[in-house]
Amino acid sequence: MQRKRFDDMQCPIARSLDRVGEWWSILILRDAFYGLSRFDEFQKHLEIAPNILTRRLAGLVEQGLLEKVQYSERPPRYEYHLTPRGRDFRPVLLALLQWGNTHFAPEGPAVILTDIETGKQAIPMMVDANTGKPITPQTHIIAEGPAASDKVKRSIAELLERRAAAAS
């Protein structure tokens, strides 16, 4: 069965999920951030079937998140390096790390983010790069962008109406 594609939707979340919305792809990107780059390293660390890993790596290369670089001619062997687009996925991974630690680690966190300078645990949060203010539901809302279609404009207007009705 062919899965639904989201790349023709204007929603940036749907378009992003079209590129990385499959758990193996996200785990491969995580491991690339950990420094893994070779097929056998990914396979061993993830305990993933070779055919699945081959497809996921090819998809991440096709989507521009990884680049495939040959490091041996005989036999031909490749490494997979994060591209700028792939490196921009880091905040998403850190948000998932924090969310998982907060909600799905009853025994306590197994992996944490730490400040290199102080060695203390860092808690990632999203802030507005323009103002430095934390982004919260009370301070920021979703709005239509300059390229929004009529469908997106209607959808956002409906969401904002629901929000206003709920607040009153």
Rank of each mutant, 00 (worst) to 15 (best):
M1P: 03
M1E: 13
M1Y: 14
K4D: 10
F6Q: 07
M9N: 05
Q10L: 00
C11E: 15
R15V: 02
L17S: 11
L17M: 13
D18S: 09
V20E: 02
V20Y: 04
E22H: 07
I28S: 00
L29K: 00
R30M: 14
D31T: 13
D31N: 09
A32F: 10
F33E: 02
L36E: 06
R38A: 01
Q43C: 01
K44S: 13
L46S: 01
L46E: 05
E47I: 08
I48G: 00
N51V: 13
I52S: 08
I52M: 06
L53P: 02
T54H: 04
T54Y: 07
T54Q: 06
R56W: 01
R56I: 01
G59V: 05
L60E: 00
L60N: 02
K68Q: 06
K68H: 02
Q70Y: 04
Y71V: 08
E73L: 14
P76H: 10
P76E: 06
Y80G: 00
L82V: 01
P84R: 06
P84C: 14
R85Q: 11
R87I: 03
D88F: 15
P91H: 06
V92G: 13
L93N: 02
L94Y: 07
A95L: 14
L97S: 03
Q98G: 05
Q98H: 07
Q98D: 08
W99N: 05
G100W: 05
N101Y: 02
H103D: 04
A105M: 12
P106N: 03
P109Q: 10
A110R: 08
V111T: 14
L113I: 06
T114H: 11
D115M: 04
I116C: 12
E117S: 11
G119I: 07
A122P: 05
P124Q: 13
V127Y: 06
V127P: 02
N130Y: 05
N130T: 05
K133C: 15
K133R: 09
P134F: 12
I135K: 15
T136E: 14
P137T: 03
T139G: 12
T139R: 13
I141V: 12
I142Y: 14
I142H: 13
E144C: 12
E144D: 13
P146Y: 08
A147M: 08
S149G: 11
V152M: 07
V152W: 07
S155I: 11
I156R: 04
I156M: 13
E158A: 14
E158Q: 12
L159R: 09
L160G: 05
E161W: 09
E161T: 09
R162W: 02
A165N: 15
A165M: 14
A165Q: 15
A166I: 03
A166G: 05
A167N: 10
A167V: 07
S168E: 12
